[in-house]
């Protein structure tokens, strides 16, 4: 049965080393077609613009990425209708984005950033100037990649997982029910209540 809620990538800070392999894998997978990025660092001619953000604290680290909210505030505030949600995935259309930052303000997790927007190895100019435009960048769950999110595969410490909270909840319900069934059976007076 398909899950009720959208999936998202979550990280285990106990396993994450903060190495940024996820950021590079994310960038690589999203720029093969758009900016002719190949397999080696030398094939990159544009700034590295990932869609998740490794956050290093004093004693732990983990990447922060979009949770693909059911009632996505970024989508609600986007006046350009550049953010959509389909099949549980919240996606930014960079072409429509004007860099107004409303989505950055709305996101409670800081999962959205504004990053340089390059196509075919060149900065896309702003409508009325030669300056390069920036666009909202956030996780799109690698929806175009049948192998699933690149970050999850690339993590050397298996710290990232594609999380299905609905399935997790049902699993926890079953485990709790099984445990309670045993406990209740062993407490006779419970039957009298």
């Amino acid at each position: 049965m398909p899950s009720e809620f959208g999936l998202f990538v979550s990280a285990d800070p106990g396993k994450c080393s903060g190495c940024k392999a996820c950021e590079l894998a994310c960038f690589q997978s999203h720029h093969v077609k758009r900016n002719k990025v190949g397999l080696t660092v030398g094939t990159v001619a544009v700034p590295v613009t990932p869609k998740l953000y490794v956050t290093v604290m004093e004693t732990a680290s983990m990447p922060i990425q979009c949770k693909h909210c059911e009632n996505a505030p970024c989508k609600a505030v986007c006046k350009q209708f550049a953010i959509s949600r389909a099949d549980g995935v919240v996606i930014v259309d960079e072409k429509k984005c004007i860099g107004c930052k409303d989505c950055l303000m709305a996101c409670p997790f800081g999962a959205v950033s504004l990053l340089p927007y390059f196509v075919d190895g060149r900065p896309v100019p702003q409508a009325d100037s030669d300056e390069g435009k920036v666009a909202a960048a956030k996780c799109d769950l690698c929806f175009e990649d049948t192998a699933g999110p690149a970050c999850v595969r690339a993590c050397p410490n298996e710290a990232l997982h594609l999380t299905d909270v609905d399935a997790d909840r049902k699993r926890k319900n079953i485990a709790a029910a099984e445990a309670l069934a045993v406990i209740n059976a062993g407490v006779p007076e419970r039957g009298l209540l």
Partner: peptide, 13 residues
């Protein structure tokens, strides 16, 4: 040598 962006590609390289 040329550096891989993603280490999963190392064995093939």
């Amino acid at each position: 040598q040329p550096k891989l962006l993603v280490d999963l590609d190392l064995p093939e390289a």
